[in-house]
């Protein structure tokens, strides 16, 4: 059984600022780390690997060469190998163009039974790439899985938590699954496995290694354009006092919360 886990590298903190002169995002000096939610997807893959002998876990990411660090970290957690998709032609991709290249890479990796994603990246917060890859691969998708188990030779059963409903879903493999962070607690890479991860294969694929339609790559292949980036104004709150007896005040609050559709 082959599991591909797609991951992203993100800035180590979300405390980014806007350059007052250029109005561009100032990411200088911010180290990259693996998107924390992606560790839940790796942990799920490793749990499946721990439960049977024939599981191979391949990590896949698209980005500049330093994204290899996140692949290495995932291999230190226990994944078997890493594939980095790195090429100038891929730069500036939005979720659609990213999903396209990832889907083509999954095809090249071949025979993937499960393709796993974290729930979303903590920087862009879209959670879109999993479903996009599922569509491009014509595979069923289970998003926001709260747990997942192999329920047959070629089948997984998962629970998905919607806002107030719990769904039980059964998917025939291959399938794409994105996981909730509550699914598990990712293991720490042990110091020894960090060292040994440097003996595991990490492959870089460039543009020519994949079967790609150039019009669907990078900026050209991205329908969306960011036109403006700015720091939000601090939310100005106006305090509405709740007055009278506790009972009167509580009733005012309930009216207000109903208006806001919070209850």
């Amino acid at each position: 059984m082959k599991i591909v886990v797609c991951l992203k590298q993100v800035p180590e903190t979300n405390d980014v600022t806007i350059d007052p002169v250029t109005h561009n995002l100032d990411r200088r000096g911010l180290a990259g780390v693996m998107n924390p939610f992606d560790k839940n997807a790796i942990e799920l893959a490793l749990n499946l690997k721990d439960s049977r002998d024939d599981v191979q876990v391949v990590l896949l990411t698209m980005g500049p060469d330093d994204y290899a660090e996140s692949l290495r970290e995932g291999m230190a957690m226990g994944a078997d190998e890493g594939v980095l998709l790195s090429d100038r032609a891929f730069a500036g991709a939005d979720t659609l163009a990213t999903g396209y290249v990832l889907a083509q890479a999954v095809k090249k990796i071949g025979d993937a039974d499960l393709i796993l994603f974290g729930r979303q990246a903590v920087d862009a917060d879209t959670g879109q790439v999993g479903p996009i890859v599922a569509e491009f691969l014509h595979q069923p998708q289970i998003t926001y899985a709260a747990n997942l188990r192999l329920s047959g030779a070629n089948e997984v059963t998962a629970e998905r938590l919607l806002e107030d409903t719990k769904q039980t879903l059964v998917a025939q493999l291959p399938a794409v699954v994105s996981v909730r962070s509550e699914l598990n607690t990712p293991r720490y890479p042990t110091p020894r496995n960090i060292q040994l991860s440097f003996n595991k294969p990490l492959t870089t694929w460039h543009h020519d290694d994949l079967d790609l339609d150039d019009s669907r790559l990078g900026q050209a292949g991205s329908p969306t354009i960011v036109t403006k980036v700015y720091a939000p104004e601090p939310v100005k709150r106006e305090l509405t006092p709740l007055t009278g007896t506790p009972s009167e005040a509580a009733s005012q609050l309930i009216t207000a919360l109903k208006q806001r559709q919070l209850i």
Partner: peptide, 10 residues
């Protein structure tokens, strides 16, 4: 150096 960086991150 790369291993040390990963270790300290962990």
């Amino acid at each position: 150096a790369a291993a040390a960086k990963l270790l300290l991150q962990m």
